Amino acid sequence: MEQVRIGVVGIGNMGGAHADWLAKGEVKGAKLTAVCDTNPACLQLAKEHLGEDILIYDNLDALFAAHCIDALLIATPHYTHPSIAIAAFKHGLHVLTEKPAGVYTKQVRLMNEAAARTNQKFGIMYNQRMNPLYRKLRDLILSGELGEIKRTNWIITNWYRSQSYYDSGNWRATWEGEGGGVLLNQDPHQLDLWQWTTGLMPVRVRAFCSFGKNRNIEVEDDVTAYVEYANGATGVFVTSTGEAPGTNRFEVTGDRGKIVIEDDKLTFWRLRISEKEFNASYTGGFGEPECWKCEVPIEGKNTAHVGIMQNFVDAIRNGTPLEAPGEEGIKGLSISNAMHLSTWLDDWVEMPIDEDLYFQLLQEKIKDSKFRKQAETER
């Protein structure tokens, strides 16, 4: 395929940015052909800023019927990602969806099954997988340089959001509109990187989510979670949208040292011999392995969203392996669902979680909600 014709559904804040990058030709081998949104104001902006050649649709059925695209980029509210993707697959389209994959794993599993029944490419906008810092961390861990992992700790509290941000859209920070708070909106990237860089998924989760702790919202805006892995390692994940200044520090400890990513730097405290080897042979009482502090050089730049789109287009045109396969979106979502479920039950949760129980409790949250907003809906 010489050129991939792409349509964008949902052209609010993020979808509008995707459409703009495509329209400006920043993705080689791709052409923005059409956009679709139910919001007349968004469609008017598209007409004014994306060029006269772009086809404009106010419903998906019309877009599908036009046969004017080869691939669909989904940037609508979270709940709709799986249903739109499934419909797109049925029409023979390649799909790239914004994060998160969905709100609950039960619906995302259906999306993954639909993808598996096609030969179409399916990607997810995990743009931080294009960040050289995390790519280097993944390389050091999966190559065995760090040894067996013992502990992971991520403090990600620099997602500051004001009350005016939450008030900017009726769908924001509600169980019915968004399906969650910081875990569903801001943290999908970190929850993905947490498992992608380490190669580990938790087997048990105990979480403490605070709902509306810092803002007038009904979903979680502050979370502290503890996880256990199959190899005996443990992890802690702390996040908030109400702290200023916030922190973004990811620390992974292994048998051969410790790696920390903070302030856009990767530091490796590397043991000359492994901790296990030292412990087995050392007889001097007090003492510890020799350790070298290494400032690991990071090459390349973070191509972020455009990098994911370029990789997606290259996969369609040339068969290039996807950096962020859409099917992997369920992994990070499984972790956030487990954190919610643990808090709702006030107990440990084994993974994989009980998807039916999660869905039931989520529906109860929606039904019992008394939270109302007056702001205009905006993406």
Rank of each mutant, 00 (worst) to 15 (best):
M1W: 12
V4P: 06
V8M: 02
G10W: 11
G16H: 08
A17T: 14
A17I: 14
W21L: 13
W21D: 14
A30S: 07
V35T: 01
C36H: 05
T38W: 08
P40I: 07
L45R: 15
D53G: 07
N59V: 03
N59S: 04
N59I: 04
A62T: 08
L63W: 01
F64D: 04
A65W: 02
H67S: 13
I69H: 03
A75E: 06
H78Q: 05
Y79R: 14
P82G: 03
S83T: 15
A85N: 02
A88H: 10
A88R: 04
H91Q: 10
H94F: 13
K99A: 05
A101S: 15
A101P: 10
G102I: 09
Y104M: 09
R109W: 12
N112H: 08
E113N: 12
A116G: 10
A116W: 08
T118V: 09
Q120K: 11
Q120N: 14
Y126C: 06
N127L: 10
Q128E: 00
N131K: 10
L140R: 03
I141S: 03
L142G: 03
S143Y: 08
G144R: 02
N153T: 13
S162E: 04
Q163M: 08
Y165M: 10
Y165R: 06
D167W: 13
G169Y: 05
N170L: 13
W175R: 03
V182C: 09
D187C: 14
H189A: 07
L191E: 01
W194K: 04
T198N: 01
G199F: 01
M201E: 06
R204G: 09
R206L: 10
C209R: 10
G212N: 04
K213Q: 12
N216F: 10
E220R: 00
E220N: 11
E220P: 09
D221C: 08
D222W: 11
V227C: 09
V227F: 11
T234K: 00
T234E: 09
V238A: 07
A244E: 14
P245H: 10
R249A: 15
F250N: 06
V252F: 09
G254Q: 07
K258P: 09
D264P: 06
L266V: 00
L266D: 00
F268Q: 00
S274K: 01
K276M: 08
A280G: 05
T283V: 11
F286C: 14
E290T: 13
C291D: 03
C291K: 05
W292T: 15
E295Y: 10
T303S: 07
A304G: 04
A304F: 10
M309H: 07
M309A: 00
Q310D: 02
R317V: 13
G319I: 05
G319W: 05
T320L: 01
P321F: 06
E328R: 11
I330T: 05
G332Q: 03
S334G: 13
S334K: 03
N337C: 11
A338M: 05
A338G: 11
L341T: 00
W348N: 13
W348Q: 11
E350Q: 15
E350R: 14
P352A: 01
D354T: 02
E355C: 08
E355I: 06
D356T: 12
L357T: 11
L357Y: 07
Q363P: 05
I366Q: 05
K370N: 14
K373S: 00
Q374K: 15
T377C: 08
